[in-house]
Write a protein that binds this DNA or RNA. Structure first.
Lengths: 187, 187
DNA sequence: TTTGTTTCGGGACGATCGTTCCGGTAGTTT
DNA sequence: AAACTACCGGAACGATCGTCCCGAAACAAA
């Protein structure tokens, strides 16, 4: 009889690994990278402290894994924004503004976490490929003569998000709208 | 005889306070906000550990003071960029690209420090006014019908800087040039 | 000089950190 | 069944953390 199923132990191990990464992301959303310790992550995941050191050789490894996991989500998120912006004509700006308002409102913690991990990548060279990959993939999607406009678009999105993070009240889609409009206007 | 000079003790105190802030900024440039502790700052400034707790009631206070001091410099820096961009015509983009390349090359550590403090402000409400003030001042400088274009310009600058921070090789002014050009092109 | 204020700095306290050790358990292979 | 491997989790180690205490020193006012 041929063995088709994977090792049950390894499956459980991978599952807990994923749970630890999710717990780490929640910690970063709530308290920032500074709040990530073996103990806080373990408590958030509801597992003993030593579980983090078993599945990740060090705290750095845990952060690396979290960034890599997070980068995937960021890519799909920005991909959606681009898709909306290009396919909907004048409605594109409206939808992009809505997505930005959502990133700065209900999902504010997540947005902060992403940029904190982004800055972490600036400081740790081993993280840079993961942080850059989605950006490269996105850039390769557009036509060559659109590349400059596309880079401006991406930079503008990043800038608007970062600036929106230090507002006391998250900006509404209506406030963002004219800026996004201007950003998307061809020239 | 009227007392004209201030208390020599207070003068020395203020001087050491300033030195501690400068040392803190150097630490952040080198190791990030995570590297800021009473002991590392004191060692960097060449003073005993307790000096930081004496002049700043807590570590948070030290970071707040550092951000406020840093925000002033950021304002003048961006002010220069705007000045170049507006007064030099087509040469404006070239000079802005040069300033960006400098911020991502020789002054890379400083740029990282500024954005780390910026994100810190996103998380600590008491820091937000200081981080936002210079942005408001700059915005109030421009004509009302230019405001949207100006906000796009600022957002674009932020985005280009952040994205440039995760490059292995800092982008050159020549690479930045077409993007800045597009960003400044009126429409 | 005497008194008071401000700055300095050594030392220590309790808390928390990353990490290791190691016995115990569950699952797989032979 | 026995041997082996992967996972679990309690306990603890040394290091480092923020902060406090308190006497000494420097300086100003009396």
């Amino acid at each position: 009889m041929v063995k088709l199923q994977t090792d049950g132990r390894k499956a459980r191990g991978e599952k807990r690994r994923a749970e630890l990464i999710e717990a780490t992301l929640r910690i970063i959303e709530r308290d920032g990278v500074a709040g990530v310790t073996h103990r806080t992550v373990a408590a958030e995941a509801g597992v003993p402290t030593t579980s983090t050191t078993y599945h990740f050789s060090s705290l750095d490894d845990l952060l690396v894994a979290t960034l890599i996991s997070c980068a995937r989500d960021m890519a799909t998120e920005v991909y959606w924004m681009i898709d909306r912006a290009r396919s909907r004509g004048s409605r594109g700006a409206e939808e992009v503004a809505g997505l930005l308002a959502e990133a700065l409102g209900p999902r504010r913690g997540r947005t902060m976490a992403e940029y904190e991990l982004y800055l972490l990548a600036a400081r740790k060279p081993e993280l840079r490929p993961a942080a850059r990959r989605w950006l490269d993939v996105l850039t390769s999607m557009v036509r060559h003569d659109d590349e400059v406009a596309f880079r401006v678009f991406l930079a503008g999105i990043d800038g608007l998000l970062i600036q929106g993070l230090i507002d006391d009240e998250p900006p509404s889609a209506e406030e963002l709208r004219p800026v996004v409009d201007y950003l998307l206007k061809p020239r």
